[in-house]
Design a protein around this nucleic acid. Structure first.
Lengths: 226, 226
DNA sequence: AGTATACACGAACATATGTTTGTATGTCAA
DNA sequence: TTGACATACAAACATATGTTCGTGTATACT
């Protein structure tokens, strides 16, 4: 059984993507989805490398069925977030950082490590959108750059970790070219991504998919005056 | 959200099968596989019942993709695929009504009477502003008349019952002459009261003190996208 | 009777998706 | 050079799979 480092970079990427995807959606990706995300042009190449991963003992495949993949070994770097102790019965969500124009947010690798005791916020069950508290995190909003989404300085946004999104969902997106993180509604267009503010008075932003990195989707917002 | 026992026997079977299948194989079953195992002759019937399960809050579906199923609630008799958060012991606050332009809110006498079991919302301690939960109530915002305060339709505002306010506090004010309830920042001027929107683009409202009845001050705002 | 609603069936439909084939390009050893 | 091997690509293929539609059958209510 090969060591993870012995796999080709492409195969490592595939494993990482499959693991993340499955964690986010609840089912594995298709061959073509793997190809898109790992910059593999041909489905047969994905198929080829999947078989290599089976040989290496990382994967099980159920032949001829869609999404017939199952990862059977842990993958460095995408280890599942460990459960964090809590006293309260109320779900406690990791408050991992601040989101603001011009600053990146470091996710998800850093979550498990950089958390301290105080960096939690209690969140009622109803505001977790049915997701497990372990795949949910919170950010404090800094600055007024999200005003057009009815979110202001000091708000706490609750998000679910995921790197993809469905149309209409509100996401935290990191725009590398602009060195900016923003909260917008997500829409996949023909060959670009439309980031739509909540307020109709503001114009949408169009970005190339390569310049749009989804960090998570917004489940809820909490604000305290005082 | 329906109780498990309220589901049809067929739907219960489907849930059990989906959960077991996913646990065994690592990916959810197809519509046809569900049909076979649950003695359902037509794929459309499976599809129909899957949508029912989504309505009941047990399932998430990713449209148009194969095996696009995810169980999001525990199912009696089946080992849970992932841990779901436990019941909350957060303070529970009475959700006494809706606030909207043109509609009065009946406070505080009716609070004790009109409340039913569902009319509570769990609120984390941090969002009660240090007040006792018994003197705090919640309102659902209806309409977009409060957009200028970064509060939108569907938001839940947490308020403390009080009939006066300090300058700068955000209050729910009932304006008898206009038959209107509104959320604004409160400022006492020489011989009038200024109700100031949060957004500078909007003009303040000046009212005579006799035409301004404070219902409570806003402690926090909670919003769930769902 | 008629109407509405919930649930079920089967067939046709569109396409998502795994598989296969033929070919090309690199490296490495003989 | 040659040949073997690993890896990559594109196109064609077969079918698995979600969706839609027309219909039927109960039950309950007017």
């Amino acid at each position: 059984m090969k060591d993870f480092k012995r796999l080709s970079l492409r195969q490592q990427n595939m494993l990482r993507f499959m693991s993340e995807y499955t964690g986010e959606r609840g089912f594995p990706p298709t061959i073509r989805e793997i190809g898109e995300r790992c910059d593999i042009a041909s489905t047969s190449v994905v198929n080829y490398n999947l078989n290599k991963l089976v040989e290496a003992g990382y994967l099980q495949r159920s032949g001829k069925v869609s999404r017939g993949l199952r990862i059977i070994r842990d993958i460095p770097g995408v280890a599942p977030l460990h459960r964090l102790a809590t006293n309260s019965n109320s779900p406690r969500v990791a408050l991992v950082g601040r989101i603001a124009a011009g600053e990146p947010i470091s996710l998800p690798e850093d979550i498990a490590h950089h958390i301290e005791e105080d960096d939690y916020v209690a969140v009622p069950q109803e505001f977790l959108g049915g997701f497990d508290e372990n795949e949910v995190f919170a950010l404090t909003v800094r600055g007024d750059s999200m005003i057009d989404s009815m979110i202001q300085d000091g708000d706490i946004v609750i998000l679910r970790q995921q790197s993809t999104a469905d149309n209409g969902e509100m996401v935290a997106a990191w725009l590398p070219e602009d060195s900016e993180t923003t909260l917008k509604h997500f829409y996949r267009e023909a060959d670009s991504i439309r980031l739509q503010p909540a307020n109709a008075a503001y114009d949408p932003i169009f970005v190339h998919p390569a310049n749009c990195q989804i960090k998570g989707k917004v489940l809820s917002v909490m604000r305290s005056y005082g």
